[in-house]
């Protein structure tokens, strides 16, 4: 999880449930490739300690990620990122589509047409490394 650790360790927004923020960060790590398919996930206690959160909260996030199929547990070996690439791609696209729709809805609320939004993305696109 080299390079991905930073994004996990950002401090949490205490106004939102902590476990959903952990779920979102794991998705970012998996979808961006910072965590690879089949990679081992650190033990719950270890990770909870590192993030300064309650182990039960972290467990809840892990269960949620398992329910969505992004992580799986092997009885003795521990917990891993799924090696089902097709699932990762499908869930990534789903999340990206949601983010884009939310963005466009916000732009619309600001009186910005799709065409204008497209232009603005191109103009500001340079800010995205």
């Amino acid at each position: 999880m080299e390079g991905g650790g930073d994004s996990l360790k950002q401090s949490f927004d205490p106004n939102l449930p902590i476990y959903t923020q952990i779920v979102d960060r794991f998705k970012q790590l998996i979808f961006s490739g910072a965590m690879s398919p089949g990679e081992k996930v650190p033990a719950v206690r270890e990770l909870a300690l590192e993030l300064g959160v309650n182990p039960n909260t972290l467990q809840r996030a892990m269960s949620e990620l398992e329910r969505e199929g992004l992580l799986y547990t092997e009885r003795t070996a521990g917990r891993f990122v799924t090696d089902d690439n097709a699932l990762i791609i499908a869930l990534r696209e789903e999340l990206i589509a949601t983010v884009v729709r939310e963005f466009l809805a916000e732009m619309k609320a600001l009186g910005c047409s799709s065409a204008e939004a497209e232009l603005l993305i191109k103009r500001h696109g340079g800010e995205m490394k």
């Binding site: 949490f12 205490p14 902590i18 300064g52 959160v53 309650n54 039960n56 909260t57």
Partner: peptide
């Protein structure tokens, strides 16, 4: 503020 992430 510094401890709320540890509570169930």
């Amino acid at each position: 503020s510094d401890v709320e992430t540890i509570f169930d």
